[in-house]
Nucleic acid binder design. Structure first.
Length: 263
DNA sequence: ATGGCCCGTAGAACGGGA
């Protein structure tokens, strides 16, 4: 037995809801972490998602950000112990929601983009990641089985970038961001994707411009990190690339992890 | 070519995303 956990930056759930429902109907996953829902809570499509067989918890705001966790009712049940945001970091931006699902602490994260390295938004990004580490590290040290799934807005290594030379020093690949990613890993996490042999040039985001997807000019910036105590249960990890081929796609494709059910 | 596209919210040749 196993359960499948996915993360997907939908870039507006209002626009992407039909694709989300199509995807879940064709290929049901048990847990879905969404980012950039861009919906206030009163506009969240709770009913449509319930009719698809999922419970959902969410935290949104107008125009920007917004996160949600969907759980398949007949396999993993409802999300428990829901926490919105980071208790150590008062933040008006809705970028974090977490819940316990089938014994796993699931953290759904939308890491700030940073815009450019000379921007205030970049400093906010680094600070935000520091506060995330401050919050999660003690829980990881205590042995809480955890999956940190989301849009990290960080390509951890040059092999996660189609054209590293073009990106050198830029936001998404800069050394301080990668240092935060590595520090997060060092608290006791592992990148599910790298537990397996993967096709070269596998990415999760492609710019809408310049036919970037057709040229596979992308970056791998969406990740599912899991605690070491879950490592042996990770059966696979892949990018759901086909969703990026659809009409009116999100610029991100989902990442899906298959996790063996606890013995 | 210091831009190309997509989204929400205005009601803007805009801000933000990445």
């Amino acid at each position: 037995m196993s359960m499948r956990l996915a993360t997907w930056n939908v870039n507006s759930l209002k626009i992407r809801l039909p694709q989300l429902l199509d995807w879940l109907a064709a290929q049901p996953v048990d847990v879905v972490c969404l980012q950039e829902t861009k919906l206030t809570d009163d506009k969240f499509p709770r009913e449509a998602i319930a009719q698809a067989g999922y419970d959902v918890v969410f935290s949104g705001q107008p125009t920007y950000n917004g996160v949600a966790i969907l759980t398949r009712r007949d396999t993993v049940g409802s999300p428990a112990d829901v926490v919105i945001g980071n208790p150590l970091h008062a933040d008006e931006q809705r970028r974090l929601i977490s819940a316990t699902v089938a014994g796993v602490r699931v953290i759904c994260a939308y890491v700030p983009n940073g815009q450019s390295i000379d921007s205030d938004k970049y400093r906010y990004k680094l600070e935000w990641l520091d506060r995330l580490i401050d919050w999660l590290a003690p829980q990881i040290a205590q042995g809480v089985p955890m999956a940190l799934a989301g849009d990290y807005n960080i390509a951890p290594e040059d092999r996660d970038v189609k054209n590293p030379a073009e990106w050198e020093g830029q936001v998404l690949v800069s050394a301080p961001e990668r240092e935060r990613f590595n520090r997060l890993v060092a608290t006791g996490l592992v990148d599910s994707f790298r537990l397996f042999e993967q096709p070269e040039k596998t990415f999760t985001w492609w710019d809408y411009r310049q036919m970037a997807f057709r040229r596979n000019n992308g970056l791998r910036i969406d990740h599912v990190l899991v605690t070491q105590n879950l490592r042996a249960r990770v059966l696979g990890c892949h990018v759901e690339r086909d969703l990026r081929k659809r009409e009116q796609p999100s610029d991100h494709a989902p990442v899906v992890v298959e996790l063996a059910t606890a013995a």
